[in-house]
């Protein structure tokens, strides 16, 4: 459908953008790449009076890699991440997950900040942020606040962002050397939102046991989530095929997906188990026997 009637403004500073959002008391909506918002407008699921285009604000398109970790500006596009060869070692999990985001044309315009603010439960960026304990910087009329990623999403398409606040950047903690990791998702067609996805990483101590395992899932609830029960199982153990199967069984029970037109709840639940098996097998370089 055609978009609902709306007005448009393109402020040149962040402060101006926030002042405009604040002045419109919830009737204005920020847009940058528009790759999530434009479909919502086309379906008339959103009908703001005013679009505030933050797409050309300066200083929000950086990919900074330092001892502090990887800092992504809100206006960084998926294509920017794909093109940045440093990320394949500075944050291979991020690079691998973002490779699954949407299609070529959307990747040229979709942004990190937009994906976080939109908070689709199946989206990769919020999932990686939560899996990695990222810190999201939010700026509003009263200044800046840092929101831990696991507190950012409140539910489907719902976040802690107030109507007059904007995400400016997200910081992923430093990626340790020799970290084991993998990301897997399953979508019916290339570029579709995943029916389910699993990200995991852990470090290995001198005894060959797993330390500080992180396991996150997307697409199987109203928001991305960590599987702490699986993390607790893995902590301090050395990975083998039996432990992987045990972890997968726990993961199936830990998620609570609902039926929708794309997949039944039971299917998604099984998918989480299967994907976790694959992720851990790849991370640990372990060959799993296929069930007969």
């Amino acid at each position: 459908m055609k978009l609902p009637p709306l007005d448009y403004i393109r402020p040149v500073t962040l402060a101006e953008a926030i002042a405009i959002l604040a002045a419109h008391g919830g009737d204005a909506k920020a847009i940058a790449g528009g790759q999530s918002l434009m479909p919502l407008l086309a379906f008339r699921l959103a009908a703001p009076e005013l679009l505030v285009d933050i797409g050309r604000l300066p200083g929000l398109r950086h990919i900074d890699i330092s001892v502090e970790g990887v800092d992504l500006g809100a206006l960084v596009t998926w294509r920017d991440i794909e093109r940045d060869a440093r990320l394949t070692y500075a944050h291979p999990l991020l690079a691998a997950a973002i490779a699954h985001v949407a299609h070529y044309q959307i990747r040229n315009r979709g942004t990190v900040g937009g994906s976080l603010a939109h908070a689709d439960p199946a989206a990769e960026m919020p999932g990686i942020a939560i899996t990695c304990d990222a810190l999201i910087t939010v700026v509003g009329p009263n200044g800046t606040r840092m929101v831990p990623a696991n507190e950012f999403c409140l539910g489907g398409l719902s976040t802690v962002l107030e109507f007059d606040e904007l995400v400016t950047n997200v910081r992923l903690p430093p990626w340790k050397q020799n970290r084991r990791w993998a990301f897997e998702e399953f979508a019916r067609r290339r570029g579709d939102f995943a029916l389910a996805g699993v990200a995991a990483f852990y470090d290995i101590d001198q005894n060959g046991t797993m330390r500080d395992p992180h396991v996150g899932v997307i697409g199987v609830g109203d928001r991305p989530m960590r599987l702490s029960v699986v993390e607790n199982l893995l902590e301090g153990k050395s990975l083998d095929a039996g432990l992987i199967l045990q972890a997968a069984a726990l993961a199936r029970d830990a998620v609570d997906p609902t039926d929708d037109i794309h997949a039944e709840a039971a299917y998604r639940r099984d998918m989480v188990g299967v994907l976790l098996e694959r992720v851990l097998a790849r991370a640990g370089n372990i060959v799993l026997m296929e069930a007969a």
């Binding site: 448009y8 393109r10 847009i31 528009g34 790759q35 434009m38 479909p39 086309a42 679009l51 285009d53 797409g55 294509r79 070529y104 044309q105 959307i106 040229n108 315009r109």
Partner: peptide, 12 residues
Amino acid sequence: AAVRSCLMLAVQ
């Protein structure tokens, strides 16, 4: 860059 022109406003 290839983009979907239905997901971009003309004013953008």
